[in-house]
Write a protein that binds this DNA or RNA. Structure first.
Lengths: 118, 118
DNA sequence: TTCAACAACTTATTATTAGTAAGTTTATAA
DNA sequence: TTATAAACTTACTAATAATAAGTTGTTGAA
């Protein structure tokens, strides 16, 4: 996804930032990462915890996450039909971003209410 | 975008979280917000600081931001053809999220290099 | 032991979103 | 007064996502 950053000497926006925020903002990506935060999950467990997601998109998003090194896929019990997905250290490190988003949601509610009551 | 959060009593993922992370992750949204962080900008200044963005999409994203109360649009000098876009307090509060994303990018580089050299 | 249901996809088709290009309107500058 | 620029708007094409159905191996009950 990203190259080593060379943004020190330009006035433009860092491409890594651009790529990253749109990558984790792709449809379902955020919630997939979020459900994996507590620990590894199997495919159908992810489906169960994300109402509305289609299996096609889930497969696609999980593949992208594996490709980017944020998630690992492992086969359980030497079976090709039992898989488990788990966040890598890089993936787990996104927790800070998730928390920042959650904090913002709460902060925003406060700010909007304040404005309405002015 | 969001409703008051009722997630305390469900095992599912918060819809506000889902909506929010995909809203700020829509194409160009992140970089538009990022360029507005230092202060208000005129339309053509935003175009100039985001290489590759089309004016159609920029207009669309700015309208969405205004609608969500993250940006205000004001007309300068009683002219209909000079506009300025500025972050609201809610919009500005997204800075924490942006910083978390930037931190993650750096952290990830460290983690990936560490893994490669193992 | 076979038949049904499940896990984890894959393929095909339709709908939504984004990108490109050209046109519009008011304002300013030469 | 004519040209250029600012800030859109419209029309059309390309890319991405959603829906629905089909595939392949696995497990579990009758």
């Amino acid at each position: 996804m990203n190259q080593p950053c060379k943004c020190k000497n330009t006035s433009h926006i860092c491409n890594n930032f651009h790529n990253t925020i749109e990558f984790i903002g792709r449809r379902w990506m955020g919630v997939i990462l979020y459900t994996l935060m507590p620990g590894p999950k199997r495919y159908h467990e992810i489906v169960a915890s994300i109402p509305g997601i289609s299996d096609r998109l889930l497969t696609e998003r999980l593949n992208e996450l594996v490709k980017e090194g944020l998630v690992t896929k492992s086969f359980l019990e030497s079976s090709t039909k039992k898989v488990e997905y788990e966040l890598t250290p890089s993936g787990l490190a996104l927790k800070e971003v998730m928390l920042a988003v959650r904090n913002w949601i709460e902060l925003r509610e406060v700010l909007q209410n304040k404005i309405e009551s002015d």
